[in-house]
Simulated scan of single mutants.
Amino acid sequence: MNRIDECATDPALPYNVFAKACPSRGTLEHITGRWGALVLGALFEGSLRFNELRRRVDGVSEKMLSQTLHALERDGLVDREAQPTNPPRVDYELTPLGREVATRLLALIHFLEGSMDDVLDARRRYDDARGGR
Rank of each mutant, 00 (worst) to 15 (best):
S24H: 06
A122L: 12
T27C: 11
T68C: 11
E29H: 12
V60E: 02
D121W: 04
L40R: 01
A129Q: 08
A12F: 09
A82H: 06
D10H: 07
V78L: 05
L53W: 00
L72E: 02
S61N: 11
C22E: 02
E52V: 01
V78I: 11
E45V: 10
E100A: 13
F111C: 05
S115R: 08
P96S: 15
L69W: 00
Y92E: 04
P84R: 14
Y92G: 01
T27D: 09
L38R: 06
D10E: 08
Q67K: 11
V57G: 00
R55K: 14
H70Q: 14
G59N: 07
T85E: 15
N86Q: 12
F44W: 03
E73Y: 02
V119I: 13
S61M: 09
S66Y: 12
G76V: 03
E6W: 03
Q67T: 09
M116H: 05
I109V: 15
K20V: 09
T27G: 04
I109S: 06
D10T: 03
D121A: 15
F18Y: 06
E62G: 15
D79G: 10
S24K: 03
S66V: 08
A42S: 12
G114S: 08
E6Y: 06
L105I: 07
R125H: 14
E62D: 15
T85S: 15
A42D: 01
R133V: 14
A71S: 15
L106W: 01
R34L: 15
A37Q: 04
G59D: 09
F18K: 09
T103N: 11
E45H: 07
D117K: 07
R124K: 15
D117R: 11
V39A: 07
N16K: 02
R133G: 09
F50E: 05
G132W: 04
L94T: 01
R130S: 05
S47A: 13
R123M: 12
P96C: 13
V17S: 08
R125N: 13
A12R: 13
F50G: 03
N16W: 01
L40Y: 00
Q83D: 12
A102E: 01
Y92C: 03
H30I: 04
R104D: 10
Y92H: 09
L53T: 00
E100H: 07
G33L: 03
A107L: 13
H110K: 10
T32L: 15
Y15L: 12
G36R: 00
D75R: 04
A8G: 05
R56N: 08
L120V: 09
